[in-house]
């Protein structure tokens, strides 16, 4: 009889597993994306220091020059230096991205919160209104608004993109607010005399912020894409305002002359920026989901 026979059924020796090492801090954040986006933003912000020549100056002696020592990324058909234009135009593109997002978030949060605290009938009315607006294709609406508003500047186009992109945020905010609005701390706050703004800012916003964070970040991406789409189609920013979109608009001519750098370089910058934003958005979503399950 070995010792093994005395082992009781059901008792198993559990092999001790060494505790998994704590995750490194840099694994919790999308470091690469943040770094790239950070560099992009900083360089666009300080573009005056980086630019080698004036990006709007048309050097007619050097049209269509391939990337080389003098022109790092080459020049376009009008003889403008693409390296300088990238930073200069990036400033405009990012600005549009952030301003449009700020506008759409503000409208979405406000509309959603009002709809969330409204009476059932008013709420139904507001939400059907949102659905009607949502059913119109986004691009169509932007084009229409653009036509109504006339000649677009940077701020004008941000507003147009901003007021066409708030619907999905409003819907999420409305659902969240409807859940929170009957909780006791909101009732207590009302009892103390808290106004709608106070409750929105102090109680609603911190509670639904994690769930719209992802959408807000994604709105930056949507706005940048919308701007470049519009500019590419020739109804966005005029050619003399440099942005990544209006640079891509030049690619129609570039394709014929076979100058790849005119399409590839602004396109690459655009894609890298969008990927960084998407990555950050995704990790934010993962993070907030995790934190909610921890509670």
């Amino acid at each position: 009889m070995t010792e093994k026979d005395f082992e009781l059924a059901g008792i198993r020796t559990v092999e001790e597993q060494p505790l998994r090492a704590k995750r490194k801090w840099y694994k919790e954040y999308p470091v690469v994306s943040m770094l790239f986006l950070g560099i992009m933003i900083v360089e666009c912000f300080f573009c005056e220091q980086i630019m080698t020549v004036n990006p709007t100056y048309m050097d007619l002696e050097h049209c269509n020059v391939a990337p080389g020592r003098k022109f790092l990324f080459g020049t376009d058909t009008l003889g403008r230096d693409i390296f300088s234009m990238i930073w200069y135009g990036g400033r405009v593109s990012l600005l549009i991205g952030f301003v449009a997002t700020a506008i759409s978030t503000a409208i979405g949060v406000l509309f959603g919160a009002v709809s969330g605290v409204a009476s059932p009938r008013a709420d139904a009315f507001l939400m059907r209104a949102v659905e009607i607006v949502l059913s119109i294709p986004n691009l169509l609406m932007i084009v229409l608004l653009q036509a109504v508003l006339g000649g677009a500047g940077v701020i004008g186009i941000s507003i147009v993109i901003g007021i066409t992109g708030w619907m999905s945020i409003a819907k999420v905010v409305r659902t969240e607010v409807r859940q929170i609005r009957n909780s006791e701390y909101v009732i207590a706050s009302k009892c103390m005399g808290g106004s709608f703004w106070h409750i929105l800012w102090r109680h609603f916003l911190p509670n639904f912020w994690p769930s719209i964070m992802f959408m807000v970040v994604m709105n930056v991406r949507t706005a940048i894409v919308a701007e470049s789409t519009l500019s590419f189609m020739g109804i966005g920013l005029p050619l003399e305002i440099v942005s990544w979109g209006s640079m891509l608009a030049l690619s129609q001519q570039a394709l014929m002359t076979g100058s790849w750098w005119m399409i590839l370089i602004p396109g690459c910058f655009l894609i890298v920026t969008l990927m960084c934003v998407t990555d950050i958005g995704n990790s934010l979503r993962r993070d907030s989901n995790q934190r909610q399950s921890n509670l």
């Binding site: 909780s183 006791e184 207590a188 102090r202 911190p206 509670l295």
Partner: peptide, 10 residues
């Protein structure tokens, strides 16, 4: 219920 009468995020 103090869990629901105070905001968990404050």
């Amino acid at each position: 219920d103090s869990t629901s009468s105070i905001n968990q995020r404050m």
